[in-house]
Design a protein around this nucleic acid. Structure first.
Lengths: 185, 185
DNA sequence: TGTACATCAGTGAACGCGCGTTCACTGATGTAC
DNA sequence: TGTACATCAGTGAACGCGCGTTCACTGATGTAC
């Protein structure tokens, strides 16, 4: 079950997209990487766009679900923020390719992503706003603070992608948590 | 001198790239927007790639120069950091289209950008490292701290791009400066 | 066991299309005498 | 002033190419009797 043709297509497509950019990779390129011919891909995905959207949205909403679960840990807001940051770091360590794919393709999709309960950005924004309302952190522009926290994480992943950092997010988790806590202080 | 054909081509190309994504815009699209036919573009740029690279690198290194100048203000490290953050906010206000273009296309170019004196990321990294050496801020992983600061700014611009924030960077400059100072505290 | 048939992942050949780019040409503008 | 010529931004038509996708077909595998 771990290596169905469909899974292999998804993995190789993701690898090529990260390596060369989504638009530089053709259906023939993907098929080659999997060891198939291009028409065979259409037995598994209705179209190229379908394949890409499947890769993006499935992963993005899964990230949202994991984040929502972490946000539900007992304790005060700072414990919840720490749990959220750590789960993102863990997701990066678990599948860096997937994380990088989301990082690189985000701008092609974010316009179309609905701001629902599985949207990671929305989840963080709402938790910051709630913490401000509850008086757990100094009040201010919740969206701006949420953006700052997301920015710290995303840019660290970007630095890792471009080899400015020698280790992944998980190896810097303590420092990233500390920075995020300073932002909400 | 402000409206040569070449300048109009650059501006319309940038607008279309930001609006639809670089790969979704053809030379014919750009020519249409300018009111020309596609072959005319080749009187001004040797190729499509040349046009895009020109747009990106010229702007990116110009940002680097402005940042380097801001970093040279007299005073301690915190004054310099504030000056750098404010100049980026000002650049955003001055030409939001250009800023967004750099934001959206960065991943297509960052692999190829040389880490020289005009690279904005490099400038910030080096200033943070120097401040740590000098004991102006607590020592730690300079690259990580630099990434955090860059992340705060970049993500704020991203939130603005996707209309999560109603105002540009310049209108939030005070808050962004405050967050960045907290990061290096 | 052998035969007929259903299933289905994968293929080879072909399609129409839009792309980046080339090139001979046009037509307006400036210059020489 | 008028005529001949140079310059040069812009154009119409055409090119070869690689793209996403379709479709009739293959060939291996499983099932029925």
């Amino acid at each position: 079950m771990l290596d169905t043709p469909k899974d292999r297509i998804k993995r190789e497509a993701m690898r090529l997209f990260v390596e060369h950019g989504v638009d530089a990779v053709s259906m023939r390129d993907i098929a080659d990487a999997v060891g198939m011919k291009a028409p065979s891909l259409y037995a598994h995905f209705r179209s190229r766009e379908d394949l890409i959207a499947d890769l993006f949205y499935a992963s993005y909403t899964e990230y949202g679900r994991q984040l929502a679960r972490a946000a539900g840990v007992p304790g005060g807001f700072r414990q919840q923020l720490e749990a959220m940051v750590r789960v993102i770091c863990a997701l990066h360590a678990e599948d860096e390719l997937l994380f990088n794919f989301l990082l690189l393709t985000q701008h092609g999709f974010l316009r179309a992503v609905p701001p629902d309960d599985c949207n990671p950005v929305e989840i963080i924004c709402q938790h910051i706003a709630a913490a401000m309302e509850a008086g757990d952190i100094p009040s201010g522009n919740a969206t701006l603070i949420a953006g700052a926290i997301i920015g710290v994480i995303v840019q660290t992943a970007t630095f890792r992608l471009y080899r400015r950092l020698g280790q992944g997010l998980a190896d810097h988790a303590d420092e990233i948590v500390a920075i995020c806590l300073r932002i909400v202080s």
